[in-house]
Write a protein that binds this DNA or RNA. Structure first.
Lengths: 190, 190
DNA sequence: TTGACCCGAGAACCATCGTTCTCTACGGTA
DNA sequence: TACCGTAGAGAACGATGGTTCTCGGGTCAA
């Protein structure tokens, strides 16, 4: 029946996105071919192109799904704390844990923007949307802590800077430096 | 009796690098072909491959030369000031001016790293070298201002964060936010 | 002048890759 | 059983791009 096919379609879509995320994040978008995705996911090329009419759209879907997961994980880490100030610092603890993961290769959206931002409006839009969502989330934490709104922007700069520096220098330390700076900034703004 | 079209090796190299810088920075490395470089520079393919045996090495040379120019420009801006504190803030004024340039497309090394860091050791090494040189420069400014050494790392995070945020959100504002944060941090660390 | 040499223009070569097509097999259905 | 729609494997196609080669013309030393 239609329901069976549809379930298969959903499962195939998830498998395809799993493989896309693993490969795109590890090697970059342009050095991964659709055939690599097929090999890693077990989803046939025909099915892949039914689900995502062009590679562009697979990339878009990869970034969109990763955005949801990334922000959810961040939220879970922050929600372990009740104190508004601690919740802000937990963002940087989360970064530190992330940077230490063995397959950490920087921020997927910064990387994708560097690779395709100039040529793919879809990718540029995903990067913008993700960073704006992150900014909104920080703004909420900052408002809860009754700090001036501009502090959220400053915290975001620290976080973004930590991501790129950790990736390029291959060390998790920037998360700790950013956390220290965030503590000073929130204290200074109070 | 040099005809206009014939160039010595040094001039050809400069022209090739000029074109490479313009195109690679604007469109990304992988979407620019060697033939594009030839068309934009007027340097024949044969000559290009004599000067740079592979595209990889042209990319490396592009990043290496840009590193020198970028840091020299930054230094010139900073050297307009004598007060140690002002010299630190001038870094962020420089970023603001840079972000406002019409062809600004983010940090060339962050972009190149996102695009090729996973597959090209040469590019990864260039990005690392550039960021370490920037870090050393900031450390010098911080030492001159008699601030604790860790402040330099924090300032770098602000600067890197401003670069990626300005690129993705297409606004120069992050430079001002970073400057404000830098002022607070240096004051707090004193 | 001549002939060895070098250069640029562009074709050629070869691999890769996004995308589509063909062909065969199979599962459900009357 | 006979039919039909669909799926998957993989070939095919067309474009692109890195790299090399050919060719014709100009340059320079002797």
């Amino acid at each position: 029946m239609g329901s069976v096919t549809r379930l298969d379609g959903v499962a195939a879509r998830e498998q395809a996105l799993d493989a896309a995320e693993r490969l795109f994040y590890a090697r970059g978008v342009q050095s991964v071919g659709m055939d690599d995705i097929r090999g890693a996911s077990g989803v046939s090329l025909k099915r892949l192109y039914q689900l995502f009419p062009a590679k562009d759209q697979l990339v878009e879907a990869y970034l969109a799904r990763r955005d949801l997961v990334w922000r959810q994980r961040l939220g879970e880490r922050v929600d372990r704390h009740r104190d508004a100030e601690e919740r802000i610092l937990a963002v940087f603890d989360h970064l530190h844990a992330w940077f230490g993961e063995p397959d950490f290769r920087g921020c997927a959206w910064i990387n994708a923007y560097g690779e395709l931002g100039a040529t793919s409006p879809r990718v540029a839009a995903q990067a913008r949307a993700h960073k704006l969502a992150f900014k909104r989330y920080l703004a909420g934490l900052v408002a809860d802590a009754k700090l001036p709104p501009g502090t959220a922007d400053q915290l975001q700069l620290l976080a973004e800077g930590a991501m790129v520096t950790a990736a390029i220098l291959e060390t998790a330390e920037p998360a700790l430096q950013a956390r220290e700076a965030a503590a000073l900034l929130t204290r200074a703004a109070r």
